[in-house]
């Protein structure tokens, strides 16, 4: 897998800082699983977080704080010396997403959103005013032209799409900010399956878009 499109470094910094929504973090984690380059950038942004923490002015603790902490660790068993394994992507499905799709991408409980477009909304992921969903776009189908109230991150898991920005294939992440309007079209013989998170409502333009808006229901 050759990844050509990455998240903005500013977004990776926000992720490391813990300043993105849960839904956005889900898409970024899935991309990170596939992308050594972005893992390295997040690692560096995390080191920055450590340096900033170290540079903070210490706040005085309550009397007896250490004694209380020592009493607590007496009751806490230490975890084994293990490293959290990174899931290996199977079937184009990053391990981050595996809990929702035990039978893989072949058996997603899709709901039809519009002709040629199916979606699955992730239960139990809090995206604030935005959403996080899996989209399946049938070959040749174009999504309505739309813009964004906030950011939209799209990770391609299978197939590919083209829009005004470029061509996006498996592993690529398309990041759009509010200034960009786009109309993605699935451009291969396979449905394009992608993971999409927004942190605010989408804005559709045109007649088709206005019809689409209530269906999207965000």
């Amino acid at each position: 897998m050759t990844i050509r499109h990455h998240p903005d470094d500013a977004t990776l910094v926000a992720y490391a800082a813990g300043a993105v929504t849960e839904g956005i973090s889900l898409v970024l984690a899935a991309h990170l699983e596939l992308c050594p380059r972005c893992r390295e950038h997040v690692r560096d942004a995390t080191e920055l977080g450590g340096a900033l923490l170290a540079g903070l002015d210490p706040a005085p603790l309550a009397d007896g704080a250490l004694t209380a902490a020592l009493a607590r660790i007496d009751r806490e068993p230490q975890a084994k010396h293990t490293r959290r394994p990174r899931h290996r992507p199977a079937d184009g499905l990053p391990g981050t997403l595996a809990p929702w799709f035990p039978a893989g991408l072949a058996r997603v409980p899709w709901r039809t959103l519009a002709p040629g477009v199916k979606h699955f909304r992730f239960p139990g992921v809090d995206s604030g005013a935005g959403t996080v969903r899996l989209l399946s776009i049938a070959p040749g189908t174009a999504l309505p032209h739309h813009g964004h109230g906030g950011s939209e991150l799209t990770l391609v898991l299978r197939g590919s799409f083209v829009d005004e920005i470029g061509r996006f294939a498996a592993g690529d992440l398309a990041e759009l900010d509010p200034s960009i309007q786009h109309q993605p079209v699935a451009d291969t013989d396979l449905p394009c399956i992608c993971l999409v998170a927004t942190d605010a409502r989408l804005r559709f333009s045109g007649v088709l878009g206005r019809l689409f808006q209530p269906l999207v229901g965000i």
């Binding site: 973090s25 970024l28 984690a29 893992r39 995390t46 450590g50 990174r86 981050t96």
Partner: peptide
């Protein structure tokens, strides 16, 4: 330690979580 503190504050102050992968 920063990541532990960050995740704890997302959990307690925002009632959300941050999805992560191994970065090492």
């Amino acid at each position: 330690v920063f990541t532990i503190a960050r995740n704890l504050r997302i959990d307690r102050l925002r009632r959300q979580r941050l999805y992560e992968v191994e970065l090492t």
